[in-house]
Computed example of a mutant assay.
Amino acid sequence: MSNLELKNVKAERFQTTDKKSVKSYISKFGSLLGLLLLCIALTFASSHFLTLKNIMNIARQSAINSLISVGMLLTILTAGIDLSVGSVLALSTCIMGVAVVKWGINPILAMLMCIAIGAFLGFLNGVMLTKLKLPHPFISTLGMKNIARGLALIVTAASPISGFPKAIQYIGAGFIGPVPVSFILVIIVFVLFSIFLNRTAQGRYIYAVGGNLEASKLSGINVEKTLILVYTLCGLMASVGGLVLTGRVNAAFPLAGLDYDLDAIAACIIGGASFMGGSGTVWGTLIGAMIMAVLRNGLNLLGVSADLQTVAIGAVIIAAVYVDVLRRQAEKKAKTQTV
């Protein structure tokens, strides 16, 4: 190949890379840009928004949804879903409440029990999906949603349990300086999940299973093991979110987390994850959870009713899914043109 031809090839390569990089940056940082624009708009709309106290309040309010959402992200990456996270949260915290308040078990041991129960329920979701060959995780997790909620009502006799020790309250209501302990926990968890998904073979397997299930099987990935792990971690994170909720309100109640599954799914989709699987990031999910918390906080400051807030969140979710559809169509069109 001559020097002139080599230069032309290099020029084409860099030109293509530049075009792709612009699209990839928009796709990668679109949710962050949306969060920044939302914060700017609310700063002008309310003088109370951009204060340290309010920002820390938003961080505290977003913690529960953030923790549940990072577990939900794993299921969405595999083109799945988990509708049981709210019920898993309720059952695990209610059993912890009975163990601590009524049986007098050590609070640290009870918290470990809470996390173990959440992980076990998630494990059962994964086993039902893989071993029973159910057609979609919608079925297994919908069944678990009702089972766990019913057990939570039975365990507590449909009554809330209050009076938790300070060790449990500290996780949800404590502060280190001006920063909520719950948000520090969120950052630690998200760093760990980011390392897991991006720096380990098992994390890459999760993306592979969601991207192309059949190709993953042919390449030797243990798909059943991967799915069981995903749903186990999702259940575990639901119970961790339950610990924060229990500590924050100093109570465990069987009807906790009724809409938490929908909030978690919304945070993932707003953050750039795709229902088609194989696409989404840990930090995008955190941004999605923050967008929801900032939006609710801002609407509260502006005196908007709870009903209209629900409408606004729904509109944001639809817009996020529509953006994902457009992105998928653009990718498919680009592949067709390349071929």
Rank of each mutant, 00 (worst) to 15 (best):
A312Y: 07
G280Y: 08
G30T: 03
L89Y: 02
N57V: 05
S159Q: 10
L262T: 14
N250A: 06
A289V: 00
E224R: 09
A251D: 02
G235L: 12
G104F: 07
L129V: 03
L74C: 01
L134F: 12
L142G: 01
G177N: 08
L301I: 05
A330Q: 10
L50H: 07
G280I: 02
P107R: 07
G34E: 00
S21I: 13
V244G: 03
F123G: 11
K333F: 07
G126P: 05
V339K: 13
T226I: 07
V98W: 01
N57R: 06
K333S: 13
V70I: 14
K20F: 15
C94F: 03
G242R: 05
V85L: 09
K53C: 00
F138G: 06
L36V: 15
I187H: 02
G118I: 07
V85A: 07
T141G: 05
A334P: 03
V223P: 04
K10Y: 12
V240A: 11
G80R: 01
N8T: 11
N198R: 02
V321L: 14
V240C: 04
G271Y: 10
M290N: 06
L33C: 14
A293F: 07
V304I: 14
F14T: 12
E224V: 00
A157H: 08
G97Y: 06
L134V: 07
T17K: 13
M56D: 00
